[in-house]
Amino acid sequence: MFPARAHREYPHRYRLEAGQCKKCGKVVFPRRLICPVCGHREFGKVILPDTGKLVSYSVIRVAPSQFTDEAPYAIGIAELTNGVKLMAQVADCDVDNIKVGMDIRIEFRRIQTDGHHGVLSYGYKFVPKWY
């Protein structure tokens, strides 16, 4: 990932910062310029909760080149405790044990490495919630 793009995405990738429409209260993640519900342009900052439930997933067995070492792995959509849905890799879980409805926790992980010389990209992944 190009360093400038990674840098721009730190607020949501590192800190789960979302935008909350100041008019209708809709929470959007990542943040947007225009509210998809009411068209308002002013947002406040909210931090998403770090737990939720997995609502869907897909197992990747033939992965893009930068993720081949991790295959097979799952990409899932989770609904967080405040109702916001987001997509991330499901880590620390055998793909045969992933179930829709399982409790997840968000953890900070390395997302990808740009070869042996490039920048390291970090962000959020889902892991099974066990405590």
């Binding site: 991790e70 620390d92 953890e107 900070f108 390395r110 970090y122």
Partner: peptide, 16 residues
């Protein structure tokens, strides 16, 4: 550590 875990990721979780 799994391949997506390093000193930085461990530090972030411990710090949180």
């Amino acid at each position: 550590p799994s391949p997506d875990t390093d000193t930085i990721t461990l530090s972030v979780t411990a710090a949180r």
